[in-house]
């Protein structure tokens, strides 16, 4: 029988996890291609303690500049001043190639991704309108699940995160299916056939488990599933 210490569902083990993240960066828009002038200004700002130059990597925006700017010279300057020169934003393909040769990232100014690169991994909540009918199974492996209705007998709802049911749970509800023991189940009326959190389950036959009544929250404490009443406002 599965319990909290040996969950039925195995956590997937891989050498590393990839997640999207955001990094603040500073955008520099030069109005001149004279690296000497740029250097002087950079020095003066650094002397004044510019956080934009000290604490964040630099992205050079060349889309407004008509003249050619010597990238390798600027790279040298930045290295000397301790500025992280990270990327160049330009539509000029040859300039992009040159930037890459220098070890910089080349960004196309016109490219504006519609969704964030890490959109896939952001935990999303699945919201289901209406009741979940007998025989239907709703699964969200990447987040929480909200049901705007009841879960009927013979229906199943599963989520890697929390489960919120704005109705009665009369079927089965399984939260934390990827092993998250902090996952909870919330419902307006508990009359479930089975509830489970991270593999620990309880059928409606257990004597000390709340099986009917008002709104409750079910959570895992240690190895036991515990029911607490949700207070009415």
């Amino acid at each position: 029988m599965a319990d909290a210490t040996s969950p039925r569902l195995n956590l997937v083990t891989t050498p590393f996890k990839l997640k999207g993240t955001s990094l603040p960066a500073t955008l520099m828009q030069p109005s001149t291609s004279n690296v000497g002038l740029l250097e002087a200004e950079l020095e003066s700002r650094l002397a004044k303690g510019s956080a934009l130059l000290k604490a964040a990597p630099l992205v050079l925006d060349l889309s407004q500049l008509d003249q050619m700017l010597d990238l390798s010279e600027l790279q040298e300057v930045c290295k000397r001043l301790g500025i992280q020169f990270l990327a160049v934003r330009t539509t000029d393909k040859s300039l992009q190639a040159y930037a890459r040769k220098l070890g910089l990232m080349a960004l196309n100014s016109l490219d504006r991704p519609a969704t964030a690169a890490n959109q896939e991994d952001i935990p999303r909540t699945l919201v289901h309108q209406g009741a979940v009918r007998s025989g239907q199974q709703l699964i969200n492996e990447k987040g929480d699940l909200v049901v705007m209705g009841s879960v009927n007998p013979g229906a199943e709802v599963l989520a890697s995160g929390q489960i919120h049911v704005y109705g009665a749970i009369r079927g089965r509800a399984l939260a934390g299916i990827q092993g998250d023991q902090q996952a909870r189940i919330f419902t307006l009326r508990l009359a479930a056939e089975l509830v489970a959190i991270a593999g620990s389950y309880q059928t409606s036959y257990s004597a000390d488990f709340v099986t009917a009544g008002d709104a409750v929250c079910i959570e895992l404490q240690g190895e036991k599933l515990v029911c607490t009443a949700l207070t009415q406002v």
Partner: peptide
């Protein structure tokens, strides 16, 4: 319960 099941099928 059987009607509930059928409703699920109607929706799918």
């Amino acid at each position: 319960r059987d009607t509930d099941r059928i409703i699920g099928l109607l929706q799918a």
